[in-house]
Design a protein around this nucleic acid. Structure first.
Lengths: 211, 211
DNA sequence: CTCGAATCGATATTTTTTTATCGATTTCTA
DNA sequence: TAGAAATCGATAAAAAAATATCGATTCGAG
C-alpha cells in the first residue's frame, strides 16, 4: 500500500510493539538517545537484529556514537504499526473476558475504539462504563451503522462458530478469537486465534527448558 | 530433557495447539482418520509442512491412503505439549481481566490450576467462584506454600514492574504479562508479554493487506 | 584541533524454516 | 485377486531470518 510495507518481515513486525514499549519506558526515564547495542542488551536480542529492524522503520538514520532519537523512533514505530488510524471494534460475548475488553481503556492508544458488546443472553444486555451491550440480533444493524470492522470473539467454545458466522454476516473482516474452539471463516476474513490456555502451557514448556 | 524436544522447531511448536484444536473438532464430528492434505487444506497450510509437523509428534507413523488416527494424534499432541503435568498458577492483579482468568475453567485441560489471585487493593480481597483473592502481602507466603510456579500479571502499567518483582521474589519462574508496560525480569525467569491492544492493531494491518 | 572510541549501515555468511520432488507402501475397487 | 489411486516419509532445494564482518562516520576527550 505504502510501498515499503512489503519489505518488512513478519518476524520483525512482531518485534516492533516490543521496541515501542521499551522506548516509551526509556522516554519516561528521560532518555533522549538510545543505541542499538543498548536496546539489544536490555531486550536480549542481537545488536545487528535491532539495527536491521530499526532501519526498516526509522525515518532518519541513526547517528554514529549517539544512536537513535527516542521520541522520533516512537513516532516512526507508531506510524509503521498503524496506530494513527481509527478502527471501530466490537466484542461478541459479554462474559467476564468480554466485559474486560469492553471497558479496557488501553485500546485508545492503538487506534482502536471498542464501541459495543453483544451477547446472546438477555441478562447481559445493558451497559458497562458507558459502553452498550446489545443482544446478538442487533449485531448486523449496529456493526453496519457504526462501521465496525474488527471483532473480538469471547464466547464459549460451542457457540464460537455460530457467533463467528454472525460477525462475518455483519460485515466484520478481522476477528480476534479467544474462544476455545476451531472456527472457520470464509476467504477475505482474517482470523487470529489467541488460545490463552495454550499460551500459558507453552510458556511452562519454555520455562522448563530455561531451567 | 526428553531427548527429542530439542529437535522440534519453535515455529512448529506454535502450530501444535492449532492442530490440536482442529483434531478435536474432527473427533467431535466422528472422524477417525485424517490425512495431512486434508488438514493442510482446512488450515491453509502446505501439506508437506503438516506432514513434517505430525512426524515430530506422532508416536506411530501415518498409514498410506488413510492418514493418521485422530484420537491417537490428539494424545500425542497433548503429551508433546505437556498438558498432562499439573502446574499451579496465580493471578496478580484482580481487576476485570484478572478475575476473568481466575474463574476461567478452560485451563484445566492444559494442566494448569489457577489457585488464587492477589491484589494490592483491600477492596478486591475475598473470593470468586470459590477461588480466593488475597492481598499482595501474602503473595510470597501462599505462592511458596502452594508451589506456584506460574504467574499471570494483570495489573495497570505503572504497577507492573513492582508486581513483577514481587512475583519473582515469591519464587515464580514463569510470568505471562498482560500489563501494558515494559518489565524486566532477572535471569532464570521466563517472561512473555501478551499485548492485547498491539495484537489487535497488528491484526488490522494483516487484514488490510488481505484486502 | 586532532585523535580515539563507539556507533551506524551495507554486504556476506550461517542457520533455520518452509516448500518441492520422488519412490515405497497400503487400502479400496473392479 | 490384481491393479489403481492416494498417502506417507525421506531427501533435496528454496526461501527466509538471524548473525557475523567490515569500512565509514561522527561525537567527545585531551
Amino acid at each position: 500500500m505504502e510501498g515499503r510495507s512489503a519489505e518488512i518481515s513478519k518476524a520483525a513486525f512482531l518485534r516492533f510493539p516490543v521496541y515501542l514499549r521499551y522506548l516509551k519506558a526509556e522516554e519516561a526515564a528521560g532518555v533522549e538517545y538510545v543505541s542499538s547495542s543498548e536496546i539489544a542488551e536490555d531486550m536480549h536480542l542481537s545488536a545487528v537484529c535491532v539495527r536491521k529492524d530499526l532501519a526498516l522503520v526509522a525515518s532518519e538514520p541513526g547517528k554514529p556514537r549517539l544512536g537513535f532519537a527516542v521520541k522520533k523512533l516512537i513516532c516512526d514505530l507508531e506510524r509503521t504499526l498503524g496506530y494513527h488510524r481509527k478502527t471501530h471494534a466490537c466484542v461478541v460475548g459479554a462474559g467476564r473476558l468480554g466485559r474486560a475488553f469492553l471497558v479496557y481503556e488501553g485500546f485508545e492508544h492503538y487506534g482502536i475504539d471498542v464501541v459495543a458488546a453483544f451477547d446472546i443472553s438477555p441478562a447481559q444486555v445493558g451497559a458497562l462504563s458507558g459502553k452498550p451491550i446489545y443482544p446478538m440480533e442487533r449485531l448486523k444493524e449496529i456493526a453496519e451503522r457504526e462501521e465496525v470492522r474488527l471483532g473480538i470473539l469471547t464466547v464459549p467454545g460451542d457457540a464460537a462458530q455460530a457467533a463467528c458466522d454472525a460477525m462475518v454476516e455483519a460485515g466484520i473482516t478481522a476477528i480476534l478469537s479467544f474462544a476455545p474452539a476451531y472456527v472457520r471463516v470464509p476467504e477475505g476474513v482474517t482470523l487470529r486465534c489467541e488460545d490463552l490456555a495454550a499460551s500459558l502451557a507453552s510458556l511452562i514448556s519454555e520455562a522448563e527448558e530455561n531451567n
